[in-house]
């Protein structure tokens, strides 16, 4: 079987076979990350540009490490140092970068659709590292990888995602990928953070966190922000923590062995209490670890058939 996608713009476009192939490929890369010499020649001679218009520590570092472990030449461009500040348009910046013949551009941008925008205008492969409130496919795929690692499967799992669904690209990408793989997805959050019509994407929506948690196999907490574009969606973080924060008592409503996940960065004491974040059911750092392998898989697969196996 070959991987037919030139770009990774979202999980929306991926079939169950695609996702399985990505997770299986990541599985084979994971071992490299535990070796003494963590480098394979798979993408030797390939150039990857990490074009980050939004601040990011975890995702950018994870992509960069993935690129280096595959022997690609990685270049980082971040918004603060880039020509965005000088008023250049996204298209011009991207075309200038393309003129230097990279093989892959990894883009993070605050505008929904920014990755699609580049894919329609450039010849190289585009990997979406998060576009606005739209998609963050590598995050969702590493989440699925982590779930599969612990449960052996995705199909049939009940995954509860709690927080600001409206502004969460992580929630959307997980929703698309999980439903494609046959999981049941529950969403919960305050009324101001549930986007209209989301249930049409094949999930169940709850306003009660307790109901959403009942019997869940996975509990995924999202980072909360008090204000969006200068408008408050909540009276206070204190009240949010009371109704939608995850603590030990609420976690008991889920399955005894439920996994606790968080895409980071965490607001301890707001959406998640420290005793849960650091507790026995948390797989938060495993998510981060698996992120490198999943991103290696994505870089490898969009590069097309290459001679060397990992």
């Amino acid at each position: 079987m070959t991987f037919l996608h030139k770009h990774i713009l979202g999980t929306r476009q991926l079939s169950a076979q695609d996702i399985t192939m990505i997770l299986d490929t990541a599985e084979s890369f994971k071992e490299i990350n535990t070796r003494d010499i963590k480098k394979v020649p798979t993408l030797r001679g390939k150039t990857v540009v990490n074009l980050f218009y939004e601040a990011s520590t975890r995702t950018r570092t994870s992509f960069e490490i993935a690129e280096k472990r595959l022997s690609a030449d990685a270049v980082n461009i971040s918004a603060s140092s880039s020509s965005v500040v000088k008023g250049e348009t996204l298209e011009d910046t991207a075309r200038n970068i393309e003129a230097m013949r990279p093989d892959i551009i990894v883009i993070r941008h605050s505008a929904s659709g920014a990755a699609d925008y580049l894919a329609r205008r450039l010849d190289c492969s585009i990997i979406n590292a998060g576009d606005g409130a739209h998609e963050h496919p590598s995050q969702a795929l590493l989440d699925l990888f982590t779930m599969r690692q612990h449960r052996g499967r995705i199909r049939g799992l009940t995954v509860t995602i709690i927080g600001d669904i409206t502004h969460s690209r992580v929630a959307r990408s997980n929703l698309f990928a999980l439903t494609t793989m046959g999981a049941r997805v529950r969403l919960a959050g305050p009324g101001t953070m549930i986007p209209p019509g989301i249930e049409k994407l094949g999930c169940e929506v709850f306003t009660s966190m307790e109901e959403a948690l009942a019997g869940a196999d996975v509990v995924m907490m999202l980072r909360i922000q008090l204000e969006r574009q200068g408008r408050s969606l909540l009276p206070s973080l204190r009240e949010y923590a009371r109704f939608y924060g995850l603590n030990r008592d609420k976690l008991q409503l889920a399955r005894e062995d439920a996994l606790v996940m968080h895409p980071g960065p965490m607001n301890r004491g707001v959406e998640i209490c420290s005793d849960v974040a650091d507790g026995g059911q948390n797989v938060i750092l495993e998510q981060v670890e698996n992120g490198v392998a999943v991103r290696m898989a994505l870089l490898y697969l969009v590069s097309g058939p290459v001679a060397d196996n990992p």
């Binding site: 929904s112 606005g132 989301i198």
Partner: peptide, 9 residues
């Protein structure tokens, strides 16, 4: 509506 939700707009 649904399309805005889908597109993250």
């Amino acid at each position: 509506g649904f399309v805005a939700t889908d597109l993250g707009l």
